[in-house]
Amino acid sequence: MVCLPLDAGAHKFRHMADRRLREFGCEQNLLSRPDGSASFVQGDTTVVVGIYGPAEVKVSKESYDRATLEVILKPKVGLPGVAERSREQFIRETCEAALLTALHPRTSIVLILQVIHDDGSLLSCCLNSACMAAMDAGLNMRCLFCGVTCAIDLDGNIILDPTAKQEKESRAVLTFAIDSVERQVMMSSTKGAFTTAEFHQSIAICQKAAESIFQFYRDSVGRRYSKS
């Protein structure tokens, strides 16, 4: 983090160096049982995802015109609570907009996410790993999506991809899912209060960061297919 000295005239400098994503990495097809699996690492935050589908569905849950998508998020310790349910809803609705569920009616697609370690930006790591797992399983998708988190600290600076410590010290944390076709906001989850200007600025920063994540998707898929 580069610290610039404050002027005597009470202007605040923006920390330019915090507009970088942490180091991220991913592994596909690491589990043998699920139809698709992936693990995504952002800094220290790690999430492993297994996806099954299109598979059989219970008659009570089946839908006549589309696949029923189910998401289960398991926290690192303890039983899943209300916060996990809320995150499951975010992930499920984002995946439903990206997957072509109308091609597989009366089937079910189940996504199971396991949090291995949480060091901030958990929801965006879950979204990234879910997208990679869906690609690995060969499900038909309308577009790709990626998750980016940014935090607004007490001075008004915007930090991209915050760690758990940075999240605690900031006054607002915003997570967005950006789609790959038009780079628009697919999902938005916010914590803390912020102004409209800060909101639009965060979206712009996250859209730029999404470019590097999409390029990473392309590179990792390229590497996978170059072996065969």
Binding site: Q89, C95, I203
Partner: peptide, 14 residues
């Protein structure tokens, strides 16, 4: 803004 809650769905422009 206290919350902008958009649980997935179609992408929206700025």
């Amino acid at each position: 803004l206290c919350t902008v809650h958009k649980p997935g769905g179609t992408p929206l422009s700025n």
